[in-house]
Amino acid sequence: MCWRLRKLMTRQNLVLTTLLAPVTLFLGVFFLLPLVIIGLFSILSPGLYGGVEWSFYHWNYGRIFGWADGIDEIFEPIYLQILLRSLGFAAMTVVLSLLLCYPVAFWVSRLSPKTRLFFLFLVTLPFFSSLVVRLYAWLLILKPSGLLNSALMGIGVISQPLEILYTPAAVVLGMVYIMVPFMFLPLYSAVDNLDRALIEASMDLGANRIQTFFKVILPQTLPGIMGGAVIVFIPSVGNFIVPDLLGGARGLMIGNLVEQQFLSARNWPFGAALSMIIMSVVLLVLLSSLGRAKKAGV
């Protein structure tokens, strides 16, 4: 019995190993290794023309957090400010896309199965074309002589073109636009799985619509909200394409900073240090929100 069980287990292990080996190998080479390299680079000194020199150098972090020596490296609070701004933009993106998607998710979940499928197809439609092309379209819409401004001026709402392009508003707008499908899908799945009997039970027990929403519907769909928020928040913090195209100097985000350090300034270790900070902040936010969700009993 024991022998057979052990044989079974080893056989199961063999199957499991075979199945998991490719993905483990892939992630090991293309995810873990680069991560280690970036972590390592972030504590090395920058080479003169890019690359790194193999000597320990903690001032990459010092420049950001304030213990630079003031000679070779100077502490600039702007980096932390940009980091905070990026977190703020990402949070706003989460909130806005949530507000946009939540009611729509309810509406879609009440459609007939055929229309629902068509709508879900529409949600994924943007993925069929290039992100850069779509963002350039926004550029054309938002620019002073663009579609939005001429339309608003045409119907007489405004007399002067609105300055939207190259502002933080344009960045958040662009990110919301990109992230809406990512918010919508987990939300929709949570809303669709919501047992209607729970809503009826709540009303039956004397809760009005508002009470039912806050005491039953919202907590029951919280896993979807959390899922969508995490999926939207993480890429938003490090996003650099949207601020690059739609944001001016005031719309600069930490992702742009990293990009500049690697491609223009050729200070790889400093770019690596910034990357590590983005990652740790995202990780912290993720862990704390997971912890809170667990406490709320989701």
Binding site: E200, L205, A296, G297
Partner: peptide, 17 residues
């Protein structure tokens, strides 16, 4: 929610949270 009537649902409809 204003009727002095309560229901026991077939699926129980308990609030899992």
């Amino acid at each position: 929610f204003k009727r002095p009537v309560n229901t026991v649902f077939q699926s129980y409809a308990l609030f899992s949270h």
